[in-house]
Design a protein around this nucleic acid. Structure first.
Lengths: 224, 224
DNA sequence: GGCTAAATTCAGAATGTCTTCAGAATGCAG
DNA sequence: CTGCATTCTGAAGACATTCTGAATTTAGCC
């Protein structure tokens, strides 16, 4: 799960990143509008946390550009205290949520979690595909009612595949999504193969049908 | 547990905060309607204590706004003496309880405790999970009838886990919830590990099953 | 102010997971 | 069928996370 933080106060962005990393998100930071655009061009973030009052330009402008490129999906605005207008404008420009400064990191985290659940899973707590049952809150996967003990990466992997059901996902995309550190370029996908193998093995052992298919030369696909 | 006090008489708000801090609540104060809105925008309070007769505007207006944003959950109104109308109006606007000035701080405290209990535990006085028995009033925990002497942090910890039954809770969230000062960002969770260990040890010593599971890399989970 | 219990910090141990590796298996193009 | 690229596999070492007991600091109480 990957998040872009657009914020020019170093101190704040650092503490946001520290917190969100511990919540197992992969975080990128942009401190100008142009670098934010660079990053959104090269990656499709699950969520963008945007400080609307950037110094180098207008946060609104960024939001507008994102919107015209259909990338305003999943934007949470950070607005200065008292600027009610900013919020309204932001929401009208397609932002999903806002938070006025100062805020608690836990609250930001809660909003991000809610946003991602809405975006990726229509706000559902559970996902069900026949015998396969995924509880997003308990972070458990059960097959025919028995718990399949998945590790964090395995769980993330399954979730990413499921949230792209019926679509072939490239190894790059998967790797970027589940690998802990951002900015990594992948010279091999051994770690992915490994997790994929373990995930499939565990699911199969629990009696789950083979929903995950590898597509030679392209990537992987989840089909129910 | 976090409470917002919306009150413009400095003297009063100060003494409320002092009292509630001693009761282990974390308190924020807003002295105008707009700053109250900022704060409720940025954080989801367990309880809001609202003086309905604010000078800078109308407390009712604030209540209305909270209501439309689904945040009127857990509001206790402070109203001037004799203004029965205010109370009725307030309750109709979705407030949960009221208190007419002047009042005893202990009374406010009792109402807050009751309110939070209602909100978090559907008004139950006790929580029971098989052999584990939690008395929210007495703040005691018994297993098989014998009292498990928990410290305050241990009790808070257990309560937080219980109130998020069947969910994996991140260490961030737990730390923020049980450590006095919130909003803090933690560089390590040693204190959490320590409390967790002591809590589990005490429960186990009393013959309690292991309801609290650590979920590697994700947090902790209470399951009955 | 001194005593006691509690909270926090610390360093090392124990555990669980991730990544890497080498080799095997599979799929594809010619 | 052959050769090359891709994917899979099991095992092991590297790494991260959690646990533990003890030491230290802090807070509550008389």
């Amino acid at each position: 799960m990957r998040i872009l933080i657009v914020e020019d106060e170093k101190e704040l962005s650092r503490s946001i990143v520290a917190y969100l990393k511990r919540e197992n998100y992969v975080c990128d930071v942009a401190d100008t509008v142009s670098s934010a655009l660079d990053k959104t061009d090269s990656f499709d973030y699950d969520c963008i946390v945007l400080d609307i009052s950037l110094v180098d330009g207008n946060g609104f402008q960024l939001l507008r550009e994102l919107k015209t490129n259909n990338r305003a999906d999943g934007v949470i605005i950070l607005s200065a205290r008292d600027s009610l207008d900013d919020r309204v404008t932001g929401l009208n420009l397609g932002a999903d949520d806002y938070l006025s400064k100062p805020f608690h990191l836990s609250e930001l985290n809660a909003r991000i979690a809610a946003l991602i659940r809405r975006k990726r899973f229509q706000g559902n707590r559970n996902l069900v595909y026949n015998e396969l049952f995924i509880d997003l809150y308990a972070k458990t996967v059960t097959v025919h009612g028995n718990n399949v003990g998945l590790t964090r990466r395995e769980f993330d992997l399954l979730l990413y595949l499921v949230s792209n059901k019926d679509r072939v996902i490239s190894k790059n995309a998967i790797a970027e999504n589940i690998s802990g550190d951002s900015g990594a370029s992948f010279d091999n996908f051994d770690f992915l193969y490994s997790h994929m193998k373990n995930l499939k093995k565990k699911l199969a052992a629990a009696g789950c049908r083979d929903y995950i298919r590898s597509v030679y030369g392209m990537g992987y696909k989840f089909t129910s």
